[in-house]
């Protein structure tokens, strides 16, 4: 594990992956968008409005995934004090926040024509809103201290506390009566969604994941450069 926590080694690997993940993002997005907007069939109940699913559902997945990455990186940072773990957690937060925001807005735009309302305070929607606030709280906290080490530590604890929200989001639709319907793709007995819709949905999911990897690498590179700049400035002051 220590071998990968070395920033120089990380930069070498990241620079190999970056052009591929960026290219893959563009290709998957072009294919996925064309498929979901023009090729995939309308739904038997929801008609053309079902196309909102192809951005809503993958962004929900990525909102949860980015938080899981942030929480694992925070735990590694707290326990093993790896220099890259804090940076990765910090880099994951804005990406996850963006996906969660997209999920909430597109869900709202889907809810109005189908359910008859932009928003309800049911368990699924509320727990997803809390996820957005957790991201925003994390981002505020991590930058709130003059000493970046202390900010990272406080934020890492918040990230770990917020982990409890992830199973609540996932299972809220099974545990309680909600307006939001239960899971369609990841459920017992296979997806309840026809192949013509599942394939573009999965392509969009992969596109968003490739996008996440790309932006995460870019942001970790930024954090590494910032840390070096800070270190040099400190030696300038004290030297």
């Amino acid at each position: 594990m220590h071998r990968f926590a070395n920033p120089a080694r990380f930069l070498r690997i990241a620079n190999v992956i970056l052009p591929w993940s960026a290219g893959l993002t563009v290709v998957l997005l072009v294919v996925g968008l064309a498929w979901s907007l023009f090729v995939s069939p309308p739904d038997y109940q929801q008609g053309e409005s079902v196309r909102i699913m192809y951005v809503h559902v993958p962004s929900a997945w990525m909102g949860l995934f980015a938080y899981a990455v942030m929480a694992v990186a925070s735990a590694v940072a707290l326990i093993w004090k790896h220099p890259l773990a804090d940076l990765s957690a910090k880099a994951s937060a804005p990406v996850g926040a963006a996906f969660t925001f997209i999920c909430l807005v597109t869900g709202s735009l889907w809810g109005k024509p189908m359910w008859g309302t932009y928003w309800v305070w049911d368990a699924r929607l509320t727990s997803m809103l809390i996820l957005l606030f957790l991201y925003l709280g994390y981002m505020a906290l991590v930058n709130a201290f003059d000493d970046p080490g202390r900010g990272a530590k406080a934020a890492a604890i918040l990230a770990l506390v917020g982990v409890v929200n992830l199973p609540i989001i996932k299972f809220s639709v099974d545990w309680w009566n909600t307006l939001h319907q239960p899971a369609s793709v990841i459920k017992m007995g296979g997806p309840a969604i026809s192949a013509g819709m599942l394939i573009p949905l999965l392509i969009m999911g992969l596109a968003f994941k490739a996008f996440y990897v790309t932006i995460l690498l870019v942001r970790v590179r930024t954090e590494i450069a910032s840390a070096k700049v800070r270190a040099i400035r400190l030696t300038q002051v004290h030297g």
Partner: peptide, 15 residues
């Protein structure tokens, strides 16, 4: 979009 243009396109736009 079968009458749902006002919801589908803004969704993709926001994204």
């Amino acid at each position: 979009m079968g009458g749902y243009a006002g919801f589908v396109w803004p969704s993709y736009g926001v994204t």
